[in-house]
Computed example of a mutant assay.
Amino acid sequence: MTAAAHVSEAPVSSPPQADQTAAFECRAVSKRYPGGALALDDITLRGEPGQVVVLVGPSGCGKTTLLRCLAGLDSVSSGEIYLQGRDAAGVQPHLRGVAMVFQNYALYPNKTVAQNIAFPLRMSRVPRKERDARTREIAEILKIGHLLDRRPRQLSGGQKQRVGIGRALVRRPAIVAMDEPLSNLDAQLRVEMRAEIRALQQRLGMTVVYVTHDQTEALSLADRIVVMNGGAIEQAGAPEEAFTAPATPFVAGFLGAMNLMSGTVAADTFRLTGAAGDAITLPRWISAPDARKAVATIGVRPEHLVVGEPPADRWSVSGHLVSSELLGTERLVAVRIGHHGEQILRIRVPADQPLSAEVRVWARDEHLHAFDAAGKRL
């Protein structure tokens, strides 16, 4: 538009421009399925080039739907998606520059490893010589160059997943979208493959959008973590921030299984819900009167609780030991608290620590988290 075109007595509003530096942007994206089910609710999110953005949350929270909308496999009901600064509305999946790695590998059983990896290039009519060269290059990077003549039935789970990743990378996409790619592997192989994916991403400088429900996987892989619940984003940011300063009780409970105790404030104490006789001193860092009145939930992680008599003025509570699980060098202990035993605290203690039937536990003020009735962090 020329400068002359702007001459008008009324202000002219221009549509918002995409951020040219972002690998992808979602602006107020919602997805509603036929029948009214809301899968995505006003999602606004961006990812930077070369980042691993991890979408994490329970089953049904909308993370896979968001991934499919980015890849163009599902359409959005409202909002906009920009890929490398371009509006993706109406752009076919194979033209978006987004490659998918699926949970179930989705390999062609009658094709060799080489043919599986090269299939997207063949569909794009890439010349045979270049196709073969790119296939061998990716296979060597993924350490499966010696498997190119094998069929999927001759491969292990980890090898099949490498083939699936290779088929995505051979297209040289701007974004690689991974939908729970390690969920079918055993625990040890998951750890190994997680490290390999991270090393590969850093070597190639890929932008990765990674879906998982595994919090350990999310925290170990993410440059930016996005915690989802009920189709909405509960918190997005650095994984360290989401873990150490969860924005909501949901994030606190999902990442690290924080103990969450509900109750009400009376004077300077926090009274557990349904506990007529138990009052807990509020943490000293909550000093503002309005903030004290607002406290509805106090949280503390299992590893931050200490068994024994507390120092003076420390936050503490008593309870009854109900279970103890051995976790190698540690035990995960469950203690029932409250006048009528309505709430459970889980505590990590050394495996050899002696425990009695009645337990007193305490925590430092800096390890306590507080949330108001609306679920907002105080």
Rank of each mutant, 00 (worst) to 15 (best):
M1G: 07
A3V: 01
V7T: 09
A10I: 15
P16Y: 05
Q20P: 06
T21D: 11
T21Y: 09
E25Y: 01
C26H: 00
C26P: 00
R27G: 02
V29W: 01
K31P: 03
P34D: 08
L38I: 05
A39M: 02
I43Q: 08
T44L: 05
T64S: 15
T64C: 13
T64M: 10
R68V: 13
G72Q: 11
S75H: 07
A89W: 13
G97F: 00
M100N: 07
P109Y: 02
K111I: 09
A114K: 07
Q115L: 01
N116V: 03
I117P: 05
R131F: 08
K143M: 03
G145K: 08
R150M: 05
R151E: 07
P152Q: 02
L155S: 03
S156C: 12
Q161C: 13
R172C: 07
V176T: 11
A177I: 00
R194S: 05
A195F: 01
Q201N: 13
Q202V: 00
L204K: 05
G205H: 11
M206Y: 02
T207D: 12
H213I: 13
D214P: 09
L219A: 04
I225C: 11
V226E: 10
N229M: 12
I233S: 08
E234N: 08
P239Y: 02
E241A: 14
A247R: 11
F254P: 14
S262F: 00
F270T: 11
G277N: 14
I280N: 03
W285Q: 12
A288L: 12
D290F: 04
K293C: 03
V295F: 04
V295N: 06
G299N: 02
E303L: 12
L305D: 02
E309L: 14
D313P: 10
D313S: 06
R314M: 09
S316D: 00
V317D: 06
H320L: 06
S324W: 09
G328H: 05
E330D: 15
R336D: 07
H339W: 15
R346L: 01
R348K: 15
P350L: 06
A351I: 03
D352C: 14
P354F: 10
E358D: 03
V359P: 09
A363F: 03
R364W: 11
D365M: 07
